[in-house]
Every structure is written in C-alpha cells, then in structure tokens.
Lab assay of single mutants.
Amino acid sequence: MATVKFKYKGEEKEVDISKIKKVWRVGKMISFTYDEGGGKTGRGAVSEKDAPKELLQMLEKQ
C-alpha cells in the first residue's frame, strides 16, 4: 500500500493511505485527516505535486 510523507509542526511523518479518512483541497495543497490509533485523529497536508496518485484519486472520488 502507498504511504504519504509530510511534515506536521516541524516533524517528519508518514502515514499509510488506508488510514486516511477525509481528503480536501486547500489552494495547491491537499489536506487530510487520518486515524492515529487509540481513538485519535491526526492531520496532515502535502503539496499537490508531492501527493501520491492514490491520495489524488481519493480526492476525485469525493
């Protein structure tokens, strides 16, 4: 499965596409929420050019 690499609050993070719950576009950025486990929801964003094609496909399906 594909992963998304991004920075959040200065920390490098990587999340599996299957854990992503919601995806939306903000200008040229793709924002998303994902399941961190333990009932927590994380947030992240990547630029449109750095987003994996699976993430862009999720955006188109909504």
Rank of each mutant, 00 (worst) to 15 (best):
D50H: 06
G27K: 14
I20D: 00
M58N: 05
V46F: 01
K49Y: 04
K40M: 12
P52L: 04
S47D: 13
W24S: 07
Q62I: 09
F32G: 01
K61I: 13
K5Y: 02
K22V: 13
L59I: 15
G10W: 01
V4I: 09
T3S: 04
G39N: 11
K19L: 09
V46L: 05
Q62R: 07
V23N: 02
T33Q: 11
K5N: 02
W24P: 00
Q57R: 04
L56R: 09
V15C: 04
E11A: 09
G10Y: 01
T41Q: 10
T33L: 07
Q57E: 08
V23D: 00
Y8Q: 05
K7I: 12
E60V: 13
D50W: 13
V15F: 01
K61V: 10
S18I: 14
K19E: 10
R43I: 07
G44Q: 01
V23R: 02
R25S: 13
E12M: 06
K22S: 13
Y8C: 15
T33H: 15
K7S: 10
K61W: 12
G38V: 13
K9C: 15
K49G: 09
G42V: 08
Y34Q: 00
K5C: 02
S18H: 10
S31A: 13
K61G: 07
G39C: 15
D35P: 08
G37R: 07
V4P: 01
E60I: 12
L59Y: 10
M1S: 14
I30M: 12
K9M: 15
I30F: 11
G44P: 01
K21C: 15
I30A: 03
T41I: 12
Y34E: 00
E60L: 07
E54C: 10
K21Q: 11
F6S: 04
I20W: 01
K9Q: 15
Y34A: 01
T3N: 03
L56S: 05
A51N: 03
S47V: 06
S18P: 09
D35R: 03
E54H: 07
E14P: 00
V26A: 10
L55A: 01
A45T: 07
K28N: 10
I17T: 06
M1T: 09
G42Y: 07
E48M: 04
D50C: 13
E60A: 14
F32D: 00
V4E: 00
W24Y: 03
V23L: 09
D16K: 05
K40L: 10
E54M: 04
V4G: 00
V23H: 03
K21I: 10
R43N: 15
F32E: 00
T41L: 07
M29N: 15
M29C: 15
T33F: 12
S31I: 06
G38Y: 08
K53Q: 14
S47Y: 08
V46K: 02
E36H: 06
L56T: 12
D16S: 07
K53R: 04
K9Y: 14
T3A: 06
R25A: 15
D35Q: 09
M58G: 05
Q57N: 10
E54P: 04
M1R: 03
E11Q: 05
Q57D: 09
Y8D: 15
V26S: 13
Y34K: 00
S18M: 04
K13V: 05
K21V: 12
T41C: 15
F6I: 11
T3E: 01
K13G: 02
S31P: 07
T33P: 00
E12T: 09
I20L: 08
E11N: 05
V26K: 15
G44V: 03
G27F: 04
G39D: 15
G39T: 09
R25N: 13
G44N: 02
S31Y: 09
K7F: 10
K9W: 07
D16I: 11
D50S: 07
G44T: 02
V4Q: 00
K5W: 01
K19W: 08
R25P: 14
I30K: 00
D16P: 08
M29Y: 11
E36Y: 04
T41V: 14
K61F: 13
E36C: 09
Y34D: 00
G27R: 05
R25D: 07
I20N: 00
K49L: 12
Q62W: 03
Y8W: 08
K19G: 04
R43M: 08
Q62A: 11
D50M: 09
G44S: 02
K22T: 12
A45V: 06
E54G: 04
I20E: 00
T33V: 05
K53N: 12
S18D: 05
A51G: 08
G27H: 12
W24G: 11
A45P: 01
F32N: 00
M58W: 05
E60P: 15
E60R: 09
E60F: 07
I17E: 02
F6M: 02
E11Y: 04
L56D: 04
K53V: 10
K40R: 12
M1L: 04
L59R: 05
E14W: 04
E11C: 11
G44C: 02
E60M: 08
R43L: 15
E14D: 03
K22I: 14
G44K: 00
K61L: 11
K28I: 10
K53P: 09
L59V: 08
D16Y: 10
K21E: 12
G38H: 09
K53A: 10
F32A: 02
L56A: 15
V15K: 01
E14V: 06
G37K: 05
E14Y: 03
Q62D: 14
F32C: 03
V15T: 07
G37A: 09
G44F: 02
W24E: 14
Q62L: 13
I17K: 02
D16E: 10
L55G: 00
D35F: 08
K28C: 15
I20C: 03
L59N: 07
D50I: 07
K28Y: 08
G37L: 07
Q57L: 10
L56Q: 09
K19S: 08
K21W: 13
G38Q: 14
Q57C: 15
G37H: 14
G27C: 14
Y8S: 04
G38N: 06
F32M: 03
L55P: 00
T41A: 09
G44H: 01
I30G: 00
P52T: 06
I20V: 04
K13W: 02
Q57T: 14
E54D: 10
R25W: 15
M29L: 09
T33S: 07
Q57F: 08
D16Q: 08
D35T: 08
E54F: 11
Y8N: 04
S47H: 05
T33G: 05
G39W: 04
Y34N: 01
P52S: 03
K28M: 09
L56W: 09
L55F: 07
P52I: 13
P52H: 05
T33Y: 12
M1K: 10
R43D: 07
L55E: 00
V15Y: 01
S18A: 05
G38R: 06
K21D: 12
S31T: 08
K7Y: 13
E12H: 05
M29W: 09
I17C: 12
M1F: 05
V4S: 00
I30V: 09
K9V: 02
K22P: 01
D50K: 11
V46A: 04
K22E: 14
K5E: 01
T33R: 05
T41M: 10
T33A: 12
S47G: 12
K5T: 02
D35V: 12
Y34F: 05
M58A: 11
G27Q: 15
T3K: 14
F6N: 01
S18K: 10
T3F: 03
K40N: 12
S47R: 14
G44A: 08
T33M: 07
D16T: 09
L55I: 11
K61S: 09
K19Y: 12
V4F: 03
V46D: 00
M58H: 09
E60K: 07
G39F: 08
A51I: 05
G38K: 13
E14T: 08
P52M: 04
M29E: 14
K53S: 15
D16R: 06
E54W: 04
L59C: 10
A51V: 14
R25I: 12
S47P: 13
K61A: 12
K28A: 08
E36Q: 13
G42S: 08
R43Q: 11
L56M: 08
S47K: 10
E14Q: 05
S47W: 10
A2G: 11
T33E: 13
V26Y: 12
K7P: 13
G39R: 10
E54I: 04
K61R: 05
V46G: 01
E11F: 05
K7G: 07
V23F: 05
A51K: 02
P52N: 04
T33N: 11
D16G: 08
G27W: 04
E11D: 04
V46R: 02
E36D: 08
Y8M: 03
L55H: 00
K28H: 08
E36L: 09
E12S: 07
G27Y: 07
M58C: 14
P52R: 02
G10P: 00
K19F: 15
Y8K: 03
E60S: 12
M58R: 09
G10F: 02
K19A: 12
